[in-house]
């Protein structure tokens, strides 16, 4: 299935990426060829096959969610691209 530059612009919007028109065309071409390539999976009949999300069945345990002391707050805040004291700042969300 061909992917158009318009498809790519829509997907880019969903993924929060801005593409220039010539970039959209290039990504559409590359993504289109990959989507064509992966479509060969359709040669396999899989209606009765269970999907595998994780290869190792035992994977995925739960533990109690207990509070633990942490001294990382300062180091975490130090990574903020923009902050106001102990708060992360962002552009205005509500008009």
């Amino acid at each position: 299935m061909a992917i158009t530059a318009e498809d790519i612009r829509y997907i880019a919007e969903l993924a929060r990426l801005h593409l220039a028109p010539e970039e959209a065309a290039r990504y559409a071409e590359h993504a289109g060829r990959i989507v064509e390539y992966v479509a060969q999976l359709n040669r396999l009949a899989t209606a009765s096959v269970e999907p595998t999300a994780h290869a190792v069945e035992a994977a995925g345990f739960s533990r109690e969610d207990l509070p633990r002391p942490s001294d990382a707050a300062a180091a975490i805040l130090a990574n903020a691209p923009a902050r106001d004291g102990d708060l992360f700042t962002v552009p205005k969300v509500l008009g």
Binding site: L41, N42, L44, T46, V49, E50, P51, T52
Partner: peptide, 10 residues
């Protein structure tokens, strides 16, 4: 579909 094929590969 890919997850189903993943089962076959496994």
């Amino acid at each position: 579909k890919a997850q189903q094929v993943r089962t076959l590969i496994k």
